[in-house]
Amino acid sequence: MEADRREFLKQTGLLLVLTGAAAQAWDFVLAGEPEKAPTYKLLDHWWAMAMDIRKCIGCGNCVRACKTENGVLLEPDCFRTWVERYHVHPDDPEHPEVDSPNGGYDGFPEKYKAGDGSKNFFVPKMCNHCAHSPCVQVCPVGATFESPDGVVLVDKTYCLGCRYCVQACPYGCRYIDPRTETVDKCSLCYHRITKGLTTACCEVCPMGARKLGDLKDPKDPIHDFLKDHMIHVLKPEMATGAKAYYNGLDGSVR
């Protein structure tokens, strides 16, 4: 009886934490053989990211985890994900003060005093994995592409380094990796999510401010997140089909 209950709790917890396909693969991951998990089917997934501004505390865990997991250079120009701090005066909401020291890698030093009538919040940013990506549209050699499961990826072995996509991205998500002289950006931890794991940034977020979601999985909690909150994407006027969904995104965020 005791064992059954523990088993039940474990399964429920897993279901809550992991997405459908991921839950299936979890046993293999625990056994240390994630490569033996059921074959990943591209067409069964449509990945997205749910971000909750109200939960983000600017600790920078995601930035550090991302750099470690993906071998991103520690230089302060190279980020696959970064966190911005907004400081908005109520009398001038159109011109927020934004800072992102080292992309939030080291957290944010105290800067603004409480109670001066302004509001402060953090905005975690990353590639929006747009469904109609301007970067994919403009790449002259097709080195950037959308995978059938909704992830925008870069073939670093074919990229020219022409930087046309860097200019096409409305969100500033792309940078040139000085080691390869080719473009680099968030891959949504593709090497992890296809093995049933979540992304490194989601894994380490202490507040659950970002959650990877599979829009093709009806049981994924992202559906409730999208339904129960006032959701916004960055620069909706660009109509890029951005799939980084924010709850509590202030109008001053650019």
Partner: peptide, 26 residues
Amino acid sequence: DIGRPDRFWHIMPLVGLLNFPSSLLA
């Protein structure tokens, strides 16, 4: 201007694979 001049042939017509007609650079 390109970061990888060794891959210049990628954008040469007929030799490389151009993302045509989507990319204006092509």
